[in-house]
């Protein structure tokens, strides 16, 4: 009779209703969302790419703006997914009790977390698309149409980051708790995974260490696609991202069950 929180999740197509709910709310608040999605990258790319780029010159044979744009596509998806998976999911789970309302329908936590995971990844994708458009307008997408192949990778990156964010939400007592994750996880990845400078410039041991970070693997695939170069170790990188996505989804479901089940 007792359910184990660790029993295999069995999410169904019905989970799409959760995605649809979030999409409909997002559509209502489209204005501010677009300002955020386009405004931020424009500032980053102009400020760092053009300003700092003039000092830096080329990096790894690429103009700094091109190097940076391809990194920001990935990192901004990571940040956007992490925000959604923490602040927004927490809002729906705790103060707003939206999850409680949904759990009284035939949907289970398995479905809710799947819907939230895909939704968070979709928001990451939106922010990556916005940056890609801005970068293209600034002439920083030499890969041309090939750069569009970066988008499915961004989506996979989003799935990989949604789970850990929802795990944090499942164990959070309040919003402040998320500071730990941002300072200890997101920001180090943002700085060290090759967004602003190539990981080859790191000391040897750190180059090995950053290989456990999913953002490093995402950038290793996304950058060459945007730049128009061949991708090395494609399946290895994708496998790491997929592994993060699957394991984190499973743990996220278990921890949300622990929190919401009586």
């Amino acid at each position: 009779m007792k359910r184990s929180i660790w029993q295999m999740p069995r999410a169904r197509a019905a989970a799409f209703a959760v995605f649809a709910r979030n999409f409909l709310v997002w559509r209502k608040l489209l204005g501010p969302a677009i300002v955020l999605n386009f405004g931020e990258p424009v500032i980053y790319l102009l400020g760092l790419g053009i300003g700092l780029g003039a000092l830096v010159g080329d990096i790894g044979g690429l103009p700094y703006l091109v190097f940076l744009a391809s990194g920001i596509v990935a990192s901004s998806a990571m940040i956007s997914v992490s925000f959604e998976g923490m602040y927004s999911v927490y809002t729906r789970m705790v103060p707003q009790k939206t999850f409680d309302a949904i759990m009284a329908t035939p949907l289970d936590i398995d479905d809710i977390i799947l819907g939230e995971t895909v939704w968070a990844a979709f928001k990451g994708l939106l922010s990556a698309v916005a940056i890609l458009i801005v970068a293209a307008l600034l002439g920083a997408v030499p890969g041309g149409m090939m750069a569009l192949w970066a988008l499915p990778v961004v989506f996979l990156l989003g799935l990989a980051f949604a789970g850990p964010a929802i795990i944090m939400t499942a164990i959070a007592d309040n919003y402040d708790f998320f500071n730990y994750y941002f300072v200890l996880v997101v920001t180090p990845m943002f700085m060290l995974s090759g967004v602003f400078f190539p990981i080859e410039t790191l000391p040897g041991w750190m180059q090995t260490a950053v290989l456990i970070l999913p953002l490093t693997h995402a950038i290793e695939v996304i950058r060459p696609l945007i730049v128009g170069e061949p991708v090395e170790h494609l399946f290895g990188h994708l496998a790491v991202l997929a592994g993060f996505a699957v394991v984190a989804y499973y743990v996220a479901v278990a921890l949300v069950r622990r929190r919401l089940w009586d």
């Binding site: 707003q96 009790k97 009284a104």
Partner: peptide, 11 residues
């Protein structure tokens, strides 16, 4: 009908 209302405030 739960004890506390959990209607969706965004709708």
């Amino acid at each position: 009908v739960p004890q506390g209302d959990n209607l969706d405030p965004d709708f």
